[in-house]
Each structure stands twice: as structure tokens, then as C-alpha cells.
């Protein structure tokens, strides 16, 4: 899922202070699961903004609305009335959601209420960890399903850097060394010989380095 976290209330106040009628728009998909922009967070952030408005005399009028998916026009339509009524939208969707709303409503200021952080999973209650860098050219088949591009701080493709200590990453000791995980995993599935193959430098053109990416499926186009 896409993992995000909320911006601070002072940051949001700074972003919104030129407006009066504000719609806090949540998204029912990824950001709901990572507890950043779902129904509950819309309610909490709206409350915080109302309190900030009262305390600081900002004169905000806050409305709340949540749609199933902000990155999809079919769902955006459900928020049409609420969006029409407001001066500005504070989207609690991911960066894609914010831009989808902004594209759909060219005359309406749309702001991001979250910092979209990474593609990851819930590792344990309250802890989300990055697992995929969306590099556009997946190498997981070669590394036993553990991504060195994302999970190795140095993006090493041909073995560990040698800096890990007690299976922990040298750069971030709170995280496991990806290469230790890869070794253990490949050993477990009997594919250690994969490590004998030398990987050539990664072609980053399929990533953001090649500019914004588009996938076109001619068989689905109308």
C-alpha cells in the first residue's frame, strides 16, 4: 500500500490560512489502512483545524467528506457537491489522489494534507515499513523476494556492503540488513547459487530518472 503521514497542524494552518470554507477530503483506500487519511483521520484533523481556528481566530469553516478512492474519477464524482461548496480542498489522499482532484477541478485550490512517504506494509501494529521503491524493473525474483533496491540503504545488488553488525543495517541500525535477509531466505529456499550471478548496474531509466512514467495498455484503450 501507499504509506503516508499527516502534516503538522501549524503547517496545515499556513497552507490554508488564505481560505475560509475548507473541505477536508479523505480517501478510503491506502491512507485509511495506514491511518493517515481515512474517515477517522479526517474527523481528527478537522477537529484540530477547528480548534486551531478558534484559538488563533482564523475563521475556518471546515467540512468533512471521504470517498473510496481519490485517484479515480468515478469516486471523485461523489465528492462533487462538497467540492463545489468549498473555497479549497485539503486532500488527505496520497500525492496521486491530491493531483487527481486538482486535475478534475482546475478552478479549485487543492492542497496536500499528508506527506506521501513510500510503498510498504504494516510490519506490526503502528509500524509501517518501506518494501518497494517502484523502480519500474522488478528484481525480486533474483533475491528470494527481498528487494535490495529498497531495503538495502546502499542499494547494493551484488552482496552486502560489509558494514552490517549483528544482522542490522549500518546506515539504519533499527532496520535489518537486507543482504542478511536475502542470504537467509535464499538458503531457506535452496537458491543460494543465485548469488554467484553477477548483476550488471541497474538500468534506472524505468524509474523516475527517466521522467514521469506512463503505462499504456492498447488492449484496454477505447
Amino acid at each position: 500500500m501507499i504509506v503516508a503521514e499527516r502534516k503538522s497542524i501549524p503547517e496545515l494552518v499556513e497552507i490554508l490560512k488564505a481560505h475560509k470554507k475548507i473541505l477536508v477530503l479523505g480517501c478510503g483506500t491506502c491512507v485509511t489502512v495506514c491511518l493517515a487519511g481515512g474517515e477517522r483521520e479526517v474527523s481528527i484533523i478537522s477537529s484540530a483545524l477547528r480548534i486551531a481556528s478558534k484559538v488563533q481566530g482564523l475563521g475556518f469553516e471546515i467540512d468533512e467528506f471521504v470517498i473510496e478512492r481519490q485517484c479515480d474519477n468515478i469516486f471523485i464524482e461523489q465528492a462533487a457537491e462538497a467540492i463545489q461548496k468549498c473555497d479549497a480542498v485539503l486532500s488527505l489522499g496520497c500525492g496521486a489522489g491530491v493531483q487527481a482532484i486538482a486535475e478534475r477541478y482546475p478552478q479549485k485550490p487543492v492542497y496536500a494534507g499528508l506527506n506521501t512517504a513510500f510503498l510498504g506494509i504494516l510490519e506490526e501494529r503502528g509500524v509501517w515499513a518501506e518494501k518497494c521503491a517502484a523502480c519500474g524493473s522488478c528484481v525480486l525474483d533474483k533475491y528470494g523476494g527481498i528487494c535490495p533496491v529498497t531495503r538495502c540503504a546502499k542499494h547494493m545488488l551484488n552482496g552486502p556492503c560489509g558494514g552490517s553488525r549483528e544482522d542490522r543495517c549500518e546506515v539504519r541500525p533499527d532496520r535489518p540488513c537486507a543482504w542478511q535477509l536475502i542470504y537467509t531466505r535464499l538458503k531457506g529456499i535452496g537458491q543460494l547459487d543465485r548469488l554467484k550471478q553477477i548483476e550488471s548496474p541497474k538500468n534506472w531509466r524505468s524509474s523516475l530518472s527517466g521522467g514521469p512514467r506512463v503505462i499504456i495498455r492498447e488492449d484496454h484503450r477505447i
Partner: peptide, 8 residues
């Protein structure tokens, strides 16, 4: 923390 951020 949230209340502090909001100014309360």
C-alpha cells in the same frame, strides 16, 4: 501533542 499543535 495534537492539541499543542492546534494552539491549545
Amino acid at each position: 501533542k495534537l492539541l499543542s499543535e492546534a494552539g491549545l
